[in-house]
């Protein structure tokens, strides 16, 4: 044999490359470790000292007097998020079914890039549109015909409703794209079998295809929820940012509210040391919300396989 098969030192390059690649692969692990560490290091001692129930369930937020209750913000976040899902999920799923099962390929090719564009528009642009168009529309409703039923502070148009509508639009691309993929992934035989049994096209879609894509559709809703929960800029621009728990009843959706994300973004710039810790603690609450959502998605995906 002309060449020896024994190992050569020439493999040094290969070894160096591998080490560099491992370091790069560890960057994301490292990132999340750092983020978690600093978030908890800054926020956790505060929660401890201040008292976890006082912090989570306190209804007053008044940093100048060292009162840090984030319950109104939790309620605000939950309200706009639920409203966004209630409006956005049915529309998004309907569009997904339309794109995957009903629309001719030509139409899908036109609508798909539009959905992608919707996903790409910066949140501040949504916010701007929200202030000028959606808030104005809500204001003319709240200040006009509904004026006599609403307190004055509920008539500005900055509201749960404005936030919910803007977020609903913003989560549409997430729900549409992921649901449509899930529906397309359902084997064609399922539908053919249903059609073979004499179902109409819609019956087979409704009773066979959509149920088969259920976990993908639920995943899309959870990811949409995550997006709505974490959205900051657009929501600051339209929700009014008042720290208050809205009135119970239909009037509540016209109340201006502040979200957890908005609280951090609005006050971080000028916060003193303790105030800042309280904002990091707010970040922890947000982080935990998201992690719970992520775990649900992960569990769903696991069940799928």
């Amino acid at each position: 044999m002309q060449q020896t098969l024994k190992k050569k030192a020439a493999n040094l390059e290969e070894r160096i490359v591998k080490i560099i690649l491992i370091i790069m692969a560890l960057a994301s692990v490292f990132s999340i470790g750092l983020i978690g560490f600093f978030l908890f290091k800054e926020g956790l001692p505060f929660v401890w000292n201040y008292g976890i129930t006082n912090f989570l369930f306190g209804t007053t937020w008044n940093p100048t007097n060292q009162i840090y209750g984030i319950f109104p913000m939790i309620i605000g976040t939950v309200l706009v998020t639920i409203l966004a899902i209630v409006i956005g999920a049915p529309i998004g799923i309907a569009v997904a079914v339309f794109l995957a099962e009903v629309a001719p390929a030509r139409l899908t090719r036109i609508i798909k890039p539009m959905v992608d564009l919707l996903a790409g528009i910066p949140s501040v642009v949504y916010g701007l549109f929200g202030i000028v168009v959606i808030r104005s529309m809500i204001r003319s409703l709240a200040h006009g015909p509904l004026g006599e039923y609403l307190p004055g502070t509920y008539q500005t148009g900055y509201s749960v409703l404005a936030g919910g509508i803007i977020l609903a639009i913003m989560i549409l691309p997430t729900i549409i794209t992921i649901s449509a993929d899930a529906i397309r992934a359902v084997p064609k035989e399922y539908k053919e079998a249903a059609l073979g049994l004499g179902s109409t096209d819609w019956q087979s879609v409704y009773s066979v295809v959509v149920p088969a894509a259920k976990s993908g559709i639920i995943t899309s809703i959870i990811l949409g929820t995550g997006r709505a929960l974490g959205e900051t800029m657009a929501i600051i621009m339209v929700a009014g940012n008042t720290v208050q728990i809205p009135e119970f009843g239909w009037q509540g959706i016209f109340a201006p509210v502040r979200t957890l994300t908005g609280n951090v973004a609005l006050e971080m710039g000028y916060a003193g040391p303790e105030h800042r810790q309280a904002l990091f603690a707010t970040g922890i609450v947000l982080f935990i919300f998201i992690m719970i959502l992520n775990s649900i998605t992960l569990a769903l995906v696991k069940k799928e396989h």
Binding site: Q3, T4, L5, K6, K7
Partner: peptide, 18 residues
């Protein structure tokens, strides 16, 4: 050629050249 090609001293890259 008498070399055990799965032995740890064998360079796979060299092996595949041969």
């Amino acid at each position: 050629d008498g070399d055990d090609i799965y032995h740890s001293s064998i360079d796979v890259v060299q092996l595949r050249k041969s």
